[in-house]
């Protein structure tokens, strides 16, 4: 057992590293999106700042910090100020329970590559992300503008609706692995079926994976479900009245949520950090983290790919799709999974 001082010190170091990596990843996901969508549309994307425009995120960050922070006179100020902070805080909090690899030992101290190893990790992620809707809803309401209000209303209705399908799609995985701890769920996916196919949950649970994929796009307000910020109708939706750093906070929250969703998908469906390990000890220690990062990159790429490909849904289509298609499908998948597991055991 660790002493309380070293526990606090280790947790603090891990938190700082995790936040730094996450925020850098957020900045470069924006860069990746602009580059990839640019190439898909036969453009170059950012090219001016640094090689391949790689310094563009830094330039954007500086720009956001030094822009004038306009606060329209008609807003309800306490909530108007609080909303972007809520959005970004809840988006960044869920990284705390995400494991990125096996435990390592540095200088004789054994520590897991995770800020908090809790046995209800998945529930904590679901809880924190379900609170994230407050940032969007309150931003829409407190801006006191019709576009913002409509965006906020759409966002809260959409996020509450798709949360149910999202949660139910994960229950199948939980039945298979028999645990809510993210680390145990990943450990249950080690090994192979019949010696060739990796034992990832995506193979027995491919329906759940696609339900999760679609519900996650709706949860993070991304195309084709980006109704809350539909530019053609609502200017920019819930963040219409925000500028400078407050706008940037909503932006950061959206991309941090995308990364969280990608982490959960990799951990639950794609076998987490499992992959071939070879080479010297140092490489063996780093490879799991690399495999995990590769999966997240792939997931984010699919996000961007779909953004460059699909048009936006209509609002009634969105609701009908969520309630009349995804939800019954998720329940059916759950019943079948439970039956199969019950018969097998």
């Amino acid at each position: 057992m660790l002493s309380i001082e070293s526990f606090v010190a280790i947790s603090l170091i891990k938190t700082v590293i995790a936040l730094f990596v996450l925020l850098t990843a957020v900045a470069y996901t924006v860069w990746l999106e602009r580059k990839v969508v640019g190439h898909m549309q036969n453009r170059w994307g950012p090219t001016r700042v640094g090689p391949f425009g790689l310094l563009q995120p830094l330039a954007d960050g500086v720009k956001f910090m030094f822009k004038e922070d306009l606060i329209p006179p008609h807003v309800y100020k306490p909530l108007y100020m609080a909303a972007p902070m809520l959005a970004v805080v809840f988006a960044l909090t869920s990284i705390a329970v995400i494991p990125v690899g096996n435990s390592i030992s540095i200088g004789g101290i054994q520590t897991s590559l995770q800020i908090a190893d809790v046995n209800i990790g998945l529930l904590i992620i679901l809880g924190v992300t379900s609170l994230g809707v407050y940032g969007v809803a309150l931003a829409g309401w407190s801006s006191n503008s019709k576009y913002s209000l409509l965006g906020g209303l759409r966002a809260s209705a959409q996020m509450v609706s798709y949360e149910i399908a999202l949660g139910l799609s994960l229950v199948g995985v939980l039945i298979l692995s028999g645990s809510l701890s993210l680390r145990e769920i990943v450990d249950a996916q080690s090994g192979t079926y019949w010696g060739v196919l990796p034992r990832w949950n995506i193979f027995p649970q491919f329906i759940a994976f696609f339900i999760y994929l679609m519900a996650a796009y709706a949860e993070t307000n991304r195309i084709p479900f980006d109704l809350p910020e539909a530019e053609t109708e609502l200017v920019a939706g819930y963040h219409t009245e925000y500028s400078a750093m407050k706008f940037a906070m909503f932006f950061m929250a959206e991309y941090a949520n995308m990364i969280t969703v990608a982490c959960v998908a990799s951990l639950l469906f794609l076998g987490g950090w499992h992959g071939p390990r070879f080479g010297p000890p140092l490489l063996q220690a780093i490879l799991p983290v690399f495999w995990f990062a590769l999966r997240i990159f792939g997931f984010l790429f699919v996000y961007i790919w779909i953004r460059g490909t699909l048009p936006r849904f209509r609002y009634d289509q969105l609701m009908a799709f969520g309630w009349k298609f995804l939800l019954p499908l998720a329940i059916a998948n759950l019943v079948v999974t439970a039956l199969v597991v019950a018969i097998q055991s």
Partner: peptide, 26 residues
């Protein structure tokens, strides 16, 4: 009671109260 705590956040703070706020906004 960590399970009850998580469910309390997901159900009450994350769903029921969001609907309250939604109705007030509407």
């Amino acid at each position: 009671a960590e399970f009850v705590a998580a469910v309390q956040v997901i159900v009450y703070a994350g769903a029921v109260m969001v609907l309250f706020v939604f109705v007030i906004m509407l």
